[in-house]
C-alpha cells in the first residue's frame, strides 16, 4: 500500500513539474500578451494541481494535507480573478490582441464601437 501511494505521488509530482515547465516554455514561445495568458494559466491550474495532489498523497491524512488543500483552493479562486483583471486592464489600456478570427465584429462587451482607439 505504501509503495503504491509512493509511485502514484511520484507520477503526480513529475507531471506537475512537467506542466509548470510546459506553461513557462509557452510563455516564452507565444507571440503576444493575450496568448501568453493561456500558457500562464496552465501553470496556475494543471501544474499547481498535480503538484499539490502529489504532496497531499505524501502527507496523508494530517494537518499538512489540510493546509495544502487550502493553498490549492485559494490559488484556484484567485488566479482567474488576476488573469481576468490583467486581460481587462490590457484591453482598456489600448493593447489589441493579434487575431486570426475576430468574431465580435469589432464590438467588445461594455465598450462602444466608436471608442476603440
Amino acid at each position: 500500500m505504501e509503495q503504491i501511494i509512493d509511485i502514484v505521488s511520484w507520477v503526480f509530482l513529475i507531471a506537475g513539474g512537467l506542466f509548470c515547465v510546459i506553461g513557462t516554455v509557452g510563455m516564452m514561445r507565444m507571440p503576444d500578451m493575450f496568448t501568453r495568458l493561456h500558457a500562464a494559466s496552465i501553470v496556475d491550474t494543471l501544474g499547481m494541481g498535480f503538484l499539490i495532489v502529489g504532496m497531499v498523497l505524501q502527507a496523508g491524512f494530517t494537518l499538512v494535507a489540510a493546509k495544502l488543500i487550502i493553498i490549492a483552493a485559494l490559488i484556484l479562486l484567485t488566479s482567474p480573478v488576476a488573469t481576468h483583471a490583467l486581460a481587462q486592464a490590457a484591453l482598456h489600456a489600448g493593447l489589441r490582441p493579434k487575431l486570426d478570427h475576430d468574431e465580435t465584429g469589432g464590438h467588445i462587451a461594455g465598450e462602444d464601437a466608436s471608442s476603440n482607439s
Partner: peptide
Amino acid sequence: FDRVLAGNTIGTLAVLTLAL
C-alpha cells in the same frame, strides 16, 4: 502587462517552491 503576468506566475511558482 507581460511583466505583470510573469510576476503573477512567479508568485504561483514561489508558493509551490515554498511548499516543496
